[in-house]
């Protein structure tokens, strides 16, 4: 029982980070009908930006966090301008997908070039003392609690952004009905650009929160992307609450799979969930009940 609660607690804190990455995938998919296959690289870059400021330049954690998120926002905008917008104007969804996949390799290469040669795996100092705490008999790492709290704060900020700000409303409206958005005078190309920016910023926030718990390496984006994509698919791919629930579920499922089946299952669990969802509940838990082509 204690082992189970430990696994679940760990699953919840990593799941919160998957949820953040999944949010970006869902927001971009809802607005543009494109799965951003380079989204994991936004996570990876966010982590390396924070590493540069916090570890290499020895800046405090919070300013490093803020700057990494801001830079990732800029990278998201660049992705829109360089890869998405020029291709979407020619109406070729398949080309956009291929370019996104290509872009993810390019960004990995750039990361290796910029941050390589320092050993394959970079360590990020812990946020607070790594002492475990005991809650009602459940052992939790205090760092995990901090990460979970911060991830939830980012989610709430994200939700408030959509509910309360004009930009958030415009994004929601464009995702809902792009033609109507144009007819009320929204510049939908700008909305898409900011959507890419916001999605990347949230992925970077997840990376900077996760960095003290794990190791950074240029290929980290792909694994995170697969897990977040599984979370998004589980949640229905178009549902923001679905992405959050999906993220937590994937986090818990992979911990249970690793704890009770085999440690190797941790990396495979997300793929299995994607397959099962695709076959048995193709619209996901919170899906719209209609299928769209990816």
């Amino acid at each position: 029982m204690e082992y189970l609660s430990y696994l679940v607690a760990t699953g919840i804190s990593t799941g919160a980070l998957y949820a953040l990455v999944a949010l970006g995938i869902v927001v971009i998919y809802k607005a543009t009908q494109v799965v951003n296959f380079a989204h994991g690289e936004m996570f990876m870059l966010g982590g390396f930006f924070a590493y540069t400021f916090h570890v290499m330049l020895d800046w405090p954690y919070l300013p490093s966090f803020a700057l990494a998120v801001a830079l990732a926002f800029g990278v998201g905008i660049a992705v829109d301008r360089v890869a998405f917008r020029p291709l979407m104007q020619r109406q070729t969804l398949v080309s956009v997908l291929l370019v996104m996949i290509g872009l993810s390799f390019v960004l990995k290469g750039v990361a290796r070039w910029l941050w390589g040669g320092k050993g394959d795996y970079l360590t990020f100092p812990p946020l607070i003392s790594p002492e475990p705490l005991s809650f009602a008999g459940i052992m939790v790492m205090s760092q995990q609690l901090v990460v979970l709290g911060a991830a939830c704060a980012v989610m709430v900020a994200f939700a408030l952004f959509f509910k309360l700000t004009r930009a958030g409303r415009f994004m929601q409206a464009t995702a809902d009905n792009p033609k109507a958005a144009k007819l009320v005078g929204l510049r939908t190309d700008r909305v898409y650009m900011y959507t890419f920016g916001v999605g990347s910023a949230v992925a970077a926030a997840a990376a900077v929160l996760m960095a003290p718990l794990t190791l950074l390496y240029p290929d980290i984006g792909f694994m995170l992307f697969i897990k977040a994509f599984a979370a998004a698919v589980l949640g229905g791919l178009t549902s923001i609450p679905g992405a959050v629930v999906g993220g937590f579920l994937i986090g818990i499922i992979e911990q249970l799979a690793a704890g009770y089946l085999h440690t190797a299952m941790q990396e495979v669990a997300a793929f299995i969930v994607i397959m099962i969802v695709m076959i048995f509940i193709p619209t996901g838990l919170f899906g719209l009940g209609r299928m769209r082509k990816v």
């Binding site: 929601q172 409206a173 109507a180």
Partner: peptide, 19 residues
């Protein structure tokens, strides 16, 4: 019609004033 289906009536009206 092309309303913003997932948004409320009030939000639809407010979006009409987006400019």
């Amino acid at each position: 019609r092309e309303v913003f289906a997932s948004m409320t009536v009030n939000e639809n009206l407010e979006l009409g004033a987006a400019t």
